[in-house]
Structure formats: structure tokens, C-alpha cells
Simulated assay, not measured.
Amino acid sequence: MDLSTNKQPNFDNTEVAFRQKTNAELKKAFWLFKMIGNNFLTKVGPAITNFFLNIGLPVQGAIKVTIFQQFCGGETISECDHTIDQLNKGRVGTILDYSVEGEDEESIFDDTCTEIISTILRADGDSKIPITVFKITGIGRFALLEKLDAKQNLSQDEKAEFEKVKLRCELICKTAFDKKVPVMIDAEETWIQNTIDELALEMMQKFNKERIIVYNTYQMYRKDKLADLKADHLIAKAAGFILGVKIVRGAYMEKERKRALENGYPSPIQPDKETTDKDYNAALRYCVDYVEEIAIVAGTHNEDSCRLLTYLLDEKKIIHNHTHVYFSQLLGMSDNLSFNLADADYNVAKYVPYGPIKSVMPYLFRRAQENTSVKGQTGRELGLIERELKRRAL
């Protein structure tokens, strides 16, 4: 392959990064990140907002045109159409993510399963939506998964309940298989993750024989996940299926460390960011070494990891848009990575969360807190937006 024609992404190119945003949208994003950068607002805001929502004050409209609009596609799949089209103009795909959390009723799990299947049907035949996603806790009770992970005996009712969870999971993955639309299973807390991992491997063994359909998620801030990834690859190779791997750093660090401390067991989380980064990049190297046997979605807002993956692909003479390699970021964040990677012909897809505002608020608060807790994230976003505003002489 002639690599001399390969374009390299320039992550400092703000013109490409914000090409899809109007001047008004760019100014709104600037002031929103300014607000998010205020730690007091980020800490106190969730409690105040929830209070206002619970007593029925009309704050939803204000939320919808600010933080919701920045990080979410809409309240329904059809409301996401504008975002899908805008991302596609920059050659970035959409991952529709129904972001309703914390439910506990069988009827709601059935409804959520139906909605997840709707995202697959919406993606069917539409290259603008190359991948879909779901959480096992969206279709099953957290406490039940916790019992299974702890190897506790289940009652007959609980056994029947888990069979329903497995049936929902299989129905989603079978629909994905039938429609040839890949689906990712998101990672969750360590004390339910073993059950999720077992389900994901079972689904991959059923549906990944011919092509990549099901991905599991590996959180590299966990000490054991690089080894798990390699072990799962051996299982996949022996059983004759493609291993689907979404690699992320992780989303539950504070909760994990707190629970480990309270329950007197060693923290499953890496001792520092450097060790997490080391394992994340080692996972990228391993997956690229076996790119025909492992399909990767590199979920990251880390510029160094994105750059490393581009170098690895060129080093191995792998085409930029290989079907087994995707980059992924969240809507509203790191546009300098997403759009510049897409501009250099890499496969890129953004998570586009959607759902009723009140139900999506926990997701939105996590995004706001993530921007303040990840070192330099808010400052980086603000700096890039500010540079583009100056470039446009606004």
C-alpha cells in the first residue's frame, strides 16, 4: 500500500474542527464551557436543578437549549436527525445512545429493549449511523446483576428474571446481526461487570462468526483489563469468532475507589493516570497487531492515544478506513479530534445520547463533572473555541 498519499490529522486545525458550527453555536459552546469550568456551579448545579425539576419549575426549556443541546441529540430518535446530518457533513458517524438510567421495573426494561432495537432499525441501511450501543443495566436490574457477580444463589423468580435479561440481550444482538449493524455493550461497575462480560462473550460467539457485530467494552483504568482482553482474544481465536473491543479509560473511578475502601478490598483501579494510559496504549498496540481477528473502537478524548493509533496503522500499512478500526468521542466534546481524524479518512463516530430531558440529566451532570475533573479538558475546549472565534474574527 502506498502510504505517501495518507493524510495525517492536525488536531490543532480549528477550521476543520468547528466547520459544522455556526457563529452563534460556537459562541454558545464557549459560554457553556465557561460555566462548566466553574467548579461551584458543577457541584451545586445538579442538586439545584433536580430540586427545580422535582417541584415542577419550568427549567427544562433552559436546560434543553444549553447543556442538553451541547451534549445530546434530542429527546427522540427523530429529534436526532439534525445532529446526525451535521456530523455526517464532517464525515463523522453517529452512535445513537438511549441514555435513560436507574430504572428498576420489568415493563421499563421491555420498553428500553424496544427503544434500543429502534436505534438499530434506524441505522439499518444508513451509513451515517455505523454503530449502535446499549447498557445491560438498561434491560436488567442492577441488584440482580450484582447477585450474579457475587455468586449468590438466586430464587426461582430471580432465575426467571435473568432469563428475561438474556433474552432481551439476545434479541438486540440478533436484530443487529440480521440488519448488519454493529452494536456495542457498554462497561459498567466492577461488581456487575463479570456477568456483563460473560453475556458479551456469549453474544460474540453467536453473532461474530462472519463479521463484526457485537463489541464488549474494556475499561483500562482497571488493573486487570489488559490481561482480560488478551485472554478473550485467545477464546475468540479458539472458537472462531471476531473479538469486538471497545477500549476506554473508564467512567466510575471515584465510585470504585470509595466502594473498595468501604468494603475493605483492594481498589480495582490503577494507581495513577500514567498506568492507565500505559495499559490503554498497550491495548491499542495489541489490537492493531491482530486487526483481522479483533475489531477496535478506540473510545478516547486523549490526543496522544489518538495519534498513537494513527501511527500504528501506518506502521502496519493498514488503510485508514479499515472496517475493524474506529475512533469514538462524545457529542459536544473533542471536536478537534473527531473532525480532524475524519478529515484524514479515519472511521470516526460520536456517541449521540438522547432521551427525555429529566431521564438524561444524570448523564449530563456526569459530562459536566468529567469536563472539570479531567485535567485541562475544559481549558482545552475553551482554548480551541476561542481560537476559532478569533480566526473567524468574531
Rank of each mutant, 00 (worst) to 15 (best):
I296Q: 07
D289Y: 08
E254P: 00
R285E: 13
E254D: 14
E293M: 03
A260P: 02
V248F: 03
D279S: 13
Q270A: 15
F241P: 06
D304C: 01
R307P: 00
I296E: 04
R249L: 04
T323V: 12
F327R: 07
R285G: 12
R307H: 12
A236K: 03
M333F: 02
H320M: 03
D272V: 01
Y290V: 01
G332R: 11
K246S: 09
L308D: 00
L331T: 02
A283L: 11
L330Y: 08
Y311W: 07
S334Y: 08
M253D: 00
I247A: 13
A238T: 13
P268F: 12
P268E: 10
R259L: 14
I242M: 13
C287Y: 00
K278Q: 08
A282C: 04
I242Q: 12
D289H: 11
G240P: 03
D277N: 15
I235D: 11
E315Q: 15
E315C: 07
N302G: 06
I242T: 15
L284F: 13
L261Y: 03
K258E: 14
D272C: 06
Y252T: 09
K237H: 09
G244M: 07
I296Y: 07
A238F: 05
I242E: 01
T300E: 02
A238K: 15
H301W: 09
T275K: 11
C287Q: 04
L309K: 10
A282P: 00
R259P: 01
K246L: 08
I269K: 10
Q329V: 02
L308Y: 03
Q270Y: 00
K317F: 07
H301A: 07
T275I: 14
A283F: 05
P271Y: 01
R257K: 15
R285N: 08
A236S: 15
F241M: 08
E254G: 08
C287R: 02
S328D: 08
R285Q: 13
Y252S: 09
Y265T: 08
R249I: 06
V288F: 11
N263G: 02
A251Y: 10
K258D: 10
V248D: 09
N302S: 06
M253R: 10
T276V: 05
S305G: 04
R285I: 01
Y265C: 03
Y326A: 05
K237T: 11
Y290A: 10
E303P: 03
S305A: 14
S267I: 06
C306D: 03
L330H: 08
N321F: 05
Y326Q: 07
H301T: 07
K273P: 02
Y290S: 02
G299K: 02
L313I: 03
V291Q: 11
V291K: 09
G264P: 04
G299R: 06
P271F: 00
A298V: 08
E303A: 13
A282V: 06
D335A: 11
Y286N: 04
E274V: 09
C306F: 01
L330V: 07
K278S: 11
A238D: 15
T310G: 05
K316P: 04
K316D: 03
E293H: 12
S305H: 06
P268L: 13
K255L: 13
G250C: 05
I242D: 02
K255H: 08
S334C: 15
H322G: 02
K237V: 05
C306A: 15
V245R: 01
R307C: 04
I319L: 11
A283S: 13
N321R: 14
I294C: 14
L312A: 06
E293Y: 04
G264Y: 09
